[in-house]
Design a protein around this nucleic acid. Structure first.
Lengths: 206, 206
DNA sequence: TATATAATTAGATATATATCTAATGAGTAT
DNA sequence: ATACTCATTAGATATATATCTAATTATATA
């Protein structure tokens, strides 16, 4: 747990899924929610926790997409997101048994390249120092950023610009690259992620 | 993470399963093992870790029954225990969706009773202060201890005695109780756990 | 017996995180 | 406006844990 390591997105997602479930309080919370919707106060009572602690756990579960929330007046109701609970389990099994990842070697050139690109072109706080000139490296950098967008969500151009500005000032160029290399799809100034299969390669998982 | 909480065994098992998978290094390790058996040194190299760190992770994975080991000369080979990997995932899904746990209430009398027995009859280091006289409480204490044994393992009488002595001096009485209440099965001074269904009740999970 | 190799244990250290209290924010109702 | 309620954020603290190096143990071989 010493150095802040650079963990590939897919791997990180699986880790977060399991982290979310690796705590007895959160499991109890989910078990409660399996009986139906419940709001924060009720959870705090039933679980014998303070409200802030419930908020804390809810945040973790939300990040792992294990629960959904809705707000009514000033009360927040939580409920399970069952789809994601099982799909996460499936994903991690697939990952471990590496179905379809036969031709993925731990130390393939792709991986060391990816590592070095992420290390060299991104600063510690996650900003892109400069857009790589070399084609392959540029793709790696683009993919790294685009993976932080939510699949299925329709973004406005403004939102995309803001998103890209997190990483680099030149949002116009990068936005164009996103489209050009098929990471995203545009219609009437609305942007959406293309299906991952279009741009993910198994080689990049580890 | 403040007070050392008393976590029921089944819940703890699911937590440990997910903890084991909640670390990128361990996932990489499993992914490597999915290609086949590998020994410690090789893992250390491939993962860029020191040998002690590999031992550390291997221990976690072994505790969660995710890998198996065999020793040849002075080399230890690790391999996946695929059965457990998927059964753990299944168990946790079952748990969360609490199939068959309909009649389990968070604050059922059973649970508060269990909690109070565990709190009052076991000291902080896990020893049994005294054998509860009351039937229901005695069962709870016995179950708590017996759950620390490994299913499927055949123990000698001596081993069972040693095991019980961890908790209480009077191993003879407790050993007899184990048999009497169907927690264990004996033949020719060999002891084995009975199938859990025989003595676990869903009410006791939370 | 002495030496070599692999693994584990012990101990140190830095990071992560579960929990609390106190303060702040958000929304409603009087 | 004021007070009330639920939720979140900030900050503090204790525990857990991932990693390393050094020391020890286990097994094999010369």
């Amino acid at each position: 747990m010493k150095a802040k390591e650079l963990v590939p997105i897919q791997l990180e997602k699986i880790v977060n899924y399991h982290k979310a479930l690796a705590d007895p309080t959160r499991l109890r919370l989910l078990l409660l929610l399996s009986q139906g919707e419940m709001h924060g106060q009720a959870l705090a009572e039933k679980l014998n926790l303070s409200q802030p602690t419930v908020t804390h756990h809810a945040a973790k579960l939300r990040e792992a997409a294990l629960i959904k929330e809705r707000r009514d007046k000033n009360t927040v109701y939580f409920k399970l997101n069952p789809e994601f609970i099982s799909s996460g389990a499936e994903a991690s099994l697939q990952f471990i048994f590496s179905k379809g990842a036969r031709n993925m070697e731990e130390k393939s050139p792709e991986n060391s390249l990816k590592e070095s690109v992420l290390r060299n072109f991104f600063s510690k706080d996650g900003r892109l120092r400069q857009i790589p000139a070399q084609y392959k490296k540029k793709l790696i950098a683009l993919q790294y950023m685009v993976e932080k967008l939510e699949p299925g969500v329709v973004y406005t151009e403004k939102e995309i610009n803001e998103f890209i500005k997190q990483f680099h000032e030149d949002f116009a160029t990068i936005r164009r690259e996103f489209i050009m290399h098929q990471f995203m799809y545009r219609e009437n100034d609305k942007y959406e992620l293309n299906p991952q299969e279009l741009w993910t390669r198994w080689e990049n998982i580890i």
